[in-house]
Design a protein around this nucleic acid. Sequence first.
DNA 1: AGCAAATGCCTCGTTTATGATCCATACTAA
DNA 2: TTAGTATGGATCATAAACGAGGCATTTGCT
Lengths: 111, 111
Amino acid sequence: MKPESRAYSSYSRDALTLLAQIIRRARIERKLTTQELADRAGISRGLVQRIERGDPGCAIGAVFETAAIVGVRLFDADQPTMAAHLSANSATLALLPKSVRRSRGSVKDDF
Amino acid sequence: MKPESRAYSSYSRDALTLLAQIIRRARIERKLTTQELADRAGISRGLVQRIERGDPGCAIGAVFETAAIVGVRLFDADQPTMAAHLSANSATLALLPKSVRRSRGSVKDDF
DNA sequence: AGCAAATGCCTCGTTTATGATCCATACTAA
DNA sequence: TTAGTATGGATCATAAACGAGGCATTTGCT
């Protein structure tokens, strides 16, 4: 399937749009032109525009990097805290079953 | 530039890895196989694997959708709250200057 | 008002991600 | 321990993202 014609839940679409808005707002508040932001992120101006439009097809790395440059944090934590979460998560992950067994019948669908 | 060979700040790399971990963890806890998750997200199993590996080149739409399916919220808010943020942000955005003027000299670099 | 610059939005060529498939290995349940 | 299944990873064809460049419009400064 193509990112263009994929089906998105309203939540992920909203989240995407919101992130885009926040990035755009942060860029303007920091007085960076789209070109300057593009240069700093190592991407093209066109991509910055797509990111600020909330295009679902943009590479997540480009979006996160762009966000970071204008000071937007997906996880509001500093470096050491992030690292802590990373290792803590790794530990938890290590305790979970390595593979998921299909328990015929029900699936956790509560969200 | 290619998503593969792009330069990423340590923060965005960490954020990406953390998100990947969280998604993987949520999938396992919900007892979904990679294939089932892929089917529900309308993507391939291979893409789910790349997402759970934190590949920066994945389309952000696919990642957000996958996250949503396993119950991971990028913004911890419910539908109406999200909508509120969206419109509030639009309003704020409307008040900001439409274009950024290069004020030669200094640039806000404090982050 | 006038002008330089920023933005929005195209198109096109290239590079890349994605889906499909397959295989080897790891794992879980019985 | 064994059988069946999930996972990891690799390859290949195809579809799509990205970069480059251009053009029209809008914007903000003077």
